[in-house]
Design a protein around this nucleic acid. Structure first.
Lengths: 351, 351
DNA sequence: AGGCGAACAGAAACCGGTGTCAGACTAGGC
DNA sequence: GCCTAGTCTGACACCGGTTTCTGTTCGCCT
């Protein structure tokens, strides 16, 4: 259609504005705005014409102006308080994949769960940046106060976690319990009967779910689980070493140990090595997460692969889904499967 | 709707605006703006009065409005293309520490160095978000085209790297060469004479610097360095295994190997373990970076601690330094020292 | 014919700050 | 006392969108 009718092209001094688009398309600003914001009451023919001009001009709406007018920034926040760098980075990757090609960017916000100012800090963060939404990583995703804060601020949120909560709209979870049950059954199938557990910190949903999966498998096999075979760590390598030492002091000694994450599983291998206990010949080990360290120690760890990149992608899509067209708009799953990865840290018990 | 011109406090419906401050302080918007932006031509008495009102109201300028008016967002970007999650996360931590208490937030942008669209993607990223500045991580920090792009876009930048470049204004570096020299001297002091090197990828400044430090130490000790003792990896665990296997096939076999980063050093330990070679009794290993994996494998790795958190903090302060008051405004160093961390992967050679 | 709603134009206000420039007010020189 | 320079301040336009409001045109219904 007619373009450079009367006025020149675009203002000489930079990128095209909404006025340029309106003028060249022969419509009003408001109509262009309707196109951008996918208003439903719009003639298809008009929409097409405007979109054509937008494409030709390479017009991109100024995010700052939109943020000001809409009182909402096109930013999704990533809130985490996580000791595991690989996990956080994988989450970032998943979110960025989902945001690829949209107008959204990601801002990262690590927080300190132990600080009394935490919720206030997050409040300031969300308000100041006028975040569109946030993805909340475990373990802090289990903090209901934070979810309530998001609701109060009108900030969308998706919590990531290890088990489905009541509200699938705000949740992306994995099925840790089933996966750990499967992993434990793998140990049992190898002939292990004296199996230790290093569980995660008290109050963590993931720790609870994984412990339950462990107990499920033992119960199903009719194997007793004395308290003494359960130790607790806080998901760090060092506490894994400590907990492993406690279990390895037992007599009779367990022939296998499941750890609630890979860091602690690496701690088991480390502690065993210090004591001259051979893995997997004298001690089988299974971890959880499948972080790089699992494959990079000797022996490589059998572990449960936690689909965090997919989970993060799903979470981000769930957040921005209805703001963008196409594939992202389709409903995102609330649960993704974890799978057992068999490597070299498991063998049948001796004797 | 909702405006209350009367002398009441603030509109009940939200946070105080610059107009509220102006009205209560009995000055104009512009004067408040001058206070916020630390304008020098301002009566001290007026400034004090306005600051008092700002404090009482808890007023915080709206970042979106400022971004629109200034055509510049209060965001610093982190650009990286890095395989090492721990390093990236440490960088994020350092940057966030420096940004703590300022008006700035951080947005993260991983890029694909191999993509031909990379520079275009980054251009769009910087322009769209109107970034105040970016911190560029190695190895992509060595890309001069990217620095030129930032200059063109009027976006401040700080490159992080392993050696000082010409321009200390845009650089925060470590002294890898000296640190590796010291690490290698440590091996030599233990009595090693047949020392292998697994260097990083071709074209990486860090790889080059670390190799030079290695060569420096050998040359100073009068030890020859045949080509065969040098293998190359690309900073991943897997290539470390491959390179180590090549070196361990040699006869005579090296009694020590220095790897240009910890991932590859972990690969050496892994490969040695596969072959039944005891570390450190039969093979000493030194890595670089001091990532968690260094302390979490057996034996714990002697390595060079790379001060990336401090470097990132310095980089971010250098970026925003003159925008905020206080300590951050003081000039930031262009070089920070790496230090040798002695652990258990080094021992005197046998015999 | 008159009525009605959909689709859009155009103007103006607004979001919450910042730049420009003119004017007021003070101090010093004659 | 008058003029000039320099210091401080405020009115107003502006950044680039969105929203509100009043029309206007057109097609369709009764």
């Amino acid at each position: 259609m007619g373009k450079n009718d009367d006025a020149q092209g675009i203002g000489r001094s930079g990128k095209p504005t909404i006025n340029d688009v309106a003028r060249l398309a022969g419509v009003s600003k408001k109509t262009v705005s309707r196109v951008i914001n996918r208003s439903p009451l719009l003639n298809e023919e008009t929409r097409g014409r405007v979109e054509k001009v937008i494409r030709e001009l390479g017009y991109v709406p100024n995010p700052q102006a939109r943020a000001l007018a809409l009182r909402r920034n096109f930013l999704v926040g990533l809130i985490h308080d996580n000791p595991n760098a690989q996990m956080v980075l994988n989450m970032q990757q998943g979110i960025l994949e989902a945001l690829q090609g949209t107008d959204f960017a990601m801002v990262v916000r690590p927080v300190d769960r132990t600080s009394s100012m935490m919720l206030d800090d997050i409040r300031v963060f969300i308000e100041r940046q006028r975040l569109f939404g946030v993805v909340i990583l475990p373990p802090i995703s289990e903090n209901d106060g934070l979810a309530a804060l998001c609701d109060e601020l009108g900030c969308r949120y998706v919590r990531m976690g290890s088990a489905k909560l009541d509200d699938p709209e705000h949740m992306v979870a994995s099925n840790d319990r089933d996966a750990v049950k499967e992993a434990t059954e793998h140990l049992i199938a190898q002939g292990h009967k004296l199996i230790g557990l290093i569980e995660g910190p008290d109050g963590f949903r993931s720790a609870q779910e994984r412990r339950r999966g462990f107990e499920d498998a033992l119960a199903a096999a009719g194997i007793a689980l004395p308290r003494s075979l359960i130790a607790r760590g806080n998901y760090t390598f060092e506490t894994g070493v400590t907990a492993a030492n406690r279990l390895l002091d037992l007599s009779p000694r367990p022939t296998a140990i499941f750890a609630s994450n890979d860091e602690m599983a690496a701690g088991i291998v480390f502690a065993a090595r210090e004591r001259g206990i051979a893995v997997p010949e004298e001690l089988s080990v299974i971890g959880f997460d499948d972080t790089p360290i699992a494959a990079h120690i000797w022996p490589p760890l059998t572990t449960v692969r936690w689909p965090i990149v997919s989970m993060a992608r799903a979470a981000a899509r769930k957040l921005v889904g209805d703001m963008v067209g196409g594939e992202a708009a389709e409903p995102q799953p609330a649960e993704l499967p974890s799978t057992l990865v068999k490597r070299a840290s498991v063998a049948p018990p001796r004797g």
